[in-house]
Design a protein around this nucleic acid. Sequence first.
DNA 1: CAGCAACCGTTCGATAATCGGACAGTTGTT
DNA 2: AACAACTGTCCGATTATCGAACGGTTGCTG
Lengths: 259, 259
Amino acid sequence: MSHHKSDAAGADKEFLSTFARGLDVIRSFDTDTPSMTLSAVAEKNNLSRASARRFLLTLQKLGYVSQDDKKFGLTAKVLELGYSYLASLDFSETVTPIMEEVSYQLGESCSALVLDGVDIVYVARIPRRGLIPMNLQIGARLPAYATSGGRVLMASLQSPELEDVMEKTQFEQLTAYTKGPEALRTELSKIRSDGYAIVDQELELGMRALAVPVFDRRGTARFALNSSSHVSSVSMEHIVSEYVPIMQHAARKLTEVLP
Amino acid sequence: MSHHKSDAAGADKEFLSTFARGLDVIRSFDTDTPSMTLSAVAEKNNLSRASARRFLLTLQKLGYVSQDDKKFGLTAKVLELGYSYLASLDFSETVTPIMEEVSYQLGESCSALVLDGVDIVYVARIPRRGLIPMNLQIGARLPAYATSGGRVLMASLQSPELEDVMEKTQFEQLTAYTKGPEALRTELSKIRSDGYAIVDQELELGMRALAVPVFDRRGTARFALNSSSHVSSVSMEHIVSEYVPIMQHAARKLTEVLP
DNA sequence: CAGCAACCGTTCGATAATCGGACAGTTGTT
DNA sequence: AACAACTGTCCGATTATCGAACGGTTGCTG
């Protein structure tokens, strides 16, 4: 049915390379190189200086980069790009208040996260006052297989998608407790029947995390709610008996308000 | 010296229109239209269907959009674009802990924000437990002229840049207290000598905000620290005598750790 | 189940957008 | 003054990109 595209060359008629390269230019700014000269941008992206300049001037004209004495740097406007995504989720009115209530009842941080490939991505977060266990901002990523949120979302995938994630996942023994692929499969079916996931020090020693899936009215998992706490502060039993009902109650309420 | 570019046509030799259009496609997803059919994307961006399809396929191949039954939607991966900017700021190690301390000492939320055009943009935020006055996430924008953070940043601009901001600002009477252009100029020079700005119910009734500028070692303002509170909870005198010293102390500490 | 409406997918010649090498200009350093 | 390390600009060559047109698919309706 479908033409065999020339896999070797990869020159795809439907792929806008100028656009793709431009996105790479944006992403080439990072912590190590927050600002770069035109030449540095060219080199980092395998572009000619003339091309790099065109990308930078385009971004500058659009307000996404600014120039400070030969050095180019991103402006806060690039946040608007990521913001398109957050806006399309539309959490601020409906979801955040419920998360705040959960956070208050638990006395712990509470996050919302989605699956993107083999990672989970934090899309909303209510931090706990005082010690913040890890610095997880919106947009931060963690491997799905070793996180409670990742597991509830994996558990609600259909078979082909799940296989795809399992296959692409790089299983690493992050702590002495981290489960491998086989143990994870067993765990996933347990999660399916329980309706929640607990990850006990598999991602990081001393940290326990709980997550529940949040479904929309059609029954598809839209995101996960998660809360993590120190081993010293809460026992596993307490999580199961106290935290799980609160989280599941919130998840059911969320189902009603989701479009 | 410089060619007179054909101002009428606007066809700029150094402007990569494919790239610019692609960025617009990303931004065309919003709260009202979180997912769109190919045709809808085409129409919203004034593209032919064939073009819209090329943009969407490119974004899909890069993982920024996903397709669900003829409807396209952004994925969490677009957050990585905005993340490039946050990474280039590199706040997580150095700035956030100091902000947390401020938030703890004040018992109020504490935010970091930068100036982008006539707006301020939130780039880091430590929320206060309990009532969150407004839902200000990272990336959120407010008009600079009516916010304490905006004012300290405007106050530290050089004359031509300041004039530019003043000129482009749409002054609106947001509350009965909101200052106009003339009063703002007076206020700015007061801010310059005081080293802080207080905005008393000018943005929203019942809200008072305090901000201080944070300079790097070369003396350029990099961002502002801000904290806002309810009128009922704290008096103006208390802000000046208690909050200001804490904020200014944090700002000085930040100066030392900034690159 | 034919006919229609509203979509999406694909092709291909035309065209304009993009490329990059070469040269010129600028700045700061020794 | 010579040099290094940049950025700015030009223009012919090259393709990437465009869009109209046609073909499919799906779902609805009488």
